[in-house]
Design a protein around this nucleic acid. Structure first.
Lengths: 196, 196, 196, 196
DNA sequence: CATGAATGAGACTTCATTCAT
DNA sequence: TATGAATGAAGTCTCATTCAT
């Protein structure tokens, strides 16, 4: 019985190792340029083992995506900001948290964008993710803004989109914390102008 | 002399055919999932001919990127708006033009994003492109805005980034012209709020 | 443990099969005219397996060369002749042994010459081989010859070179045992004339 | 008419250029690793032109071999030595001339050996060449030697074989003129020992 | 559960050869 | 005579996947 449990545990660990390895390799090379050998080596297992846990390389991709939904992280950020009071402070805190989240999940985000435009299912995931972020924001901002609901949604979506894009093609390259802080300050200020 | 010209012309045409075909295939499948066979078939030539004009598949990628710089298109848009007067009208016109440009170059844009995060040179190209767009805008808006230069740059960059992101993960999927028009109207309105 | 051994054994056998097959094909067609498909077929495995054991066709060439150094065979011949007494008998025995060695390793020898002049590393191997042969002979002959050491070395080298050349461009073609025996007799006789 | 002649001249020149280029490339890379493109570039013409003068790459190989028979050079050496008197002087002169000939035709010789063992026709050529050399020598030495005709033939063949081998795997590498002179002196001396 | 030898389709690339100009 | 664009077969090598151990 103990043995069984140990085995089950080991199996779960190996699966996790494989998923983590796959994430790392996929985001470094993109899905189709990644080889199962790469992934196995990164996970520290032998080639064939992947097929003990997954039926194909593509299934491994889906496992990666399933594990890292980001939604949970987004919810946590919202939970914390519920208690905040000042609008500017609150927004600054949120943007900082978002950047931190992007930093953490950089590999995943990068892969998402790399594969999304040739994989509709991934694109849909992205869409959902942004929509979820917009909703969380909206819940928090509705009472504090003077503009219409639709306008608010667009304002939020634009801010989030701009931020992710900034992160992807500018911030990652520069790695300059001051510039990022400045970006946050200005963006928050302009966002408040819009919704007030 | 005529002969010479005809032959040279035909060669140039073939090269163009190959670049166009490569663009189509790359943006459909991504660089590494695209095969040279695909490209040759799409161009209507035999496999080996690619290597008469390019030394490798990667060189073909660079040729694709070199041909479609977008910069020229961006400049043309600016030239036209110089004559516009009303700020709202002008901005609306510009955003519409940008969407039209994105529609035209959808394949290229998609590929850019697909490869950029694993190819620094492409990422740099993207950065340059956005920077160029920001400058063109800034030249037009400097006199009509009341905010500081740096704030203006960030506002413009945010708007452009948001627009491209919107196009990539939302607009392309929906294919709903009304929603796009609405997006433009609201975004322009909010942008004016920021810079006034 | 048994399992482990069996598998490892089988892998070693496959590798050997590949090296033997490569030797056969390389010496029949020369290195660059040989195809990996040929080699795989000759070894009775599929194309891809070569690259499970070797990183390239060239590495396979080196494996072939490493396996068949000839040095060991040369040493054995010397060991046996140490006990011989009569000079003529001894030399005759040695030359016969050399011809036998050439017969056995004909494929390898032929390939050596085929690739040597465009591959310095192989040429060096050849040089070493001849030098080793000269030394072995010299050790045996030093006390029985009346000429200077340097002259002895040149005499031996000339005899060996002549013999190999004879084998390569004449003997292999004729396949006439009598002529070979005659060649040995006369050559031994003339060699004794030189060193006495 | 003049035009015609000029054309014919030009054609002959081009053909020569191609043969020379082919010799250079073949001896550097071996026949099958040489590409027609290499040869065309080396000759300074375009790819297709080869097939205006030769029906295949192989035919070009034969043209190379036909042009450089060496026989003529060998004959010239013999002509000159007819007048010589002293045996040692004569032989020294001949060996020096042979080395010079090998130096000149190094590329050709190297190619001969590279292809001979997989191309019987070339091997036959080599055989003929050596046989011709043996005959020329024999004609000169017959009266000056005391040994039987067959022994003389073998002695000559051995000396020539040894010399060519020495050149191919030793002399070319060292590039040491003193060592070569020493080799000639000793070899001549030992040869005289044999035939006297 | 884990290994890694083996498969075979298919990728990129090369190259002898042809042919319209 | 000369060009070089075009062909297509074949080569080296990769890699997802299978399976005996």
């Amino acid at each position: 019985m103990k043995k069984q449990t140990n085995r089950a545990l080991q199996a779960a660990e190996t699966k996790t190792k494989l998923i983590d390895a796959a994430l790392a390799v996929f985001s470094r090379k993109g899905f189709s340029a990644s080889t199962t050998k790469d992934i196995a080596r990164q996970a520290g297992v032998t080639d064939g083992l992947i097929y003990h846990y997954f039926t194909s390389k593509e299934e491994l991709l889906w496992a990666v995506i399933d594990r890292h939904t980001l939604n949970e992280s987004l919810r946590l950020i919202t939970l914390e900001i519920r208690e905040e009071t000042g609008l500017e402070e609150a927004l600054t805190y949120i943007l900082r948290s978002l950047f931190r989240l992007l930093d953490e999940k950089e590999a995943l985000i990068a892969m998402f964008f790399g594969e999304s435009h040739r994989n509709p299912a991934i694109q849909e995931k992205l869409n959902q993710l942004v929509a979820r972020g917009v909703q969380l924001f909206a819940g928090f901002l509705k009472e504090r803004s003077t503009i219409g609901e639709q306008e608010l949604y667009i304002a939020i979506r634009n801010m989030l989109n701009a931020l992710v894009m900034y992160f992807l093609i500018h911030d990652r390259v520069q790695d300059n914390k001051n510039e990022r802080e400045n970006y946050i300050t200005v963006t928050v200020h302009q966002f408040i102008k819009i919704i007030s």
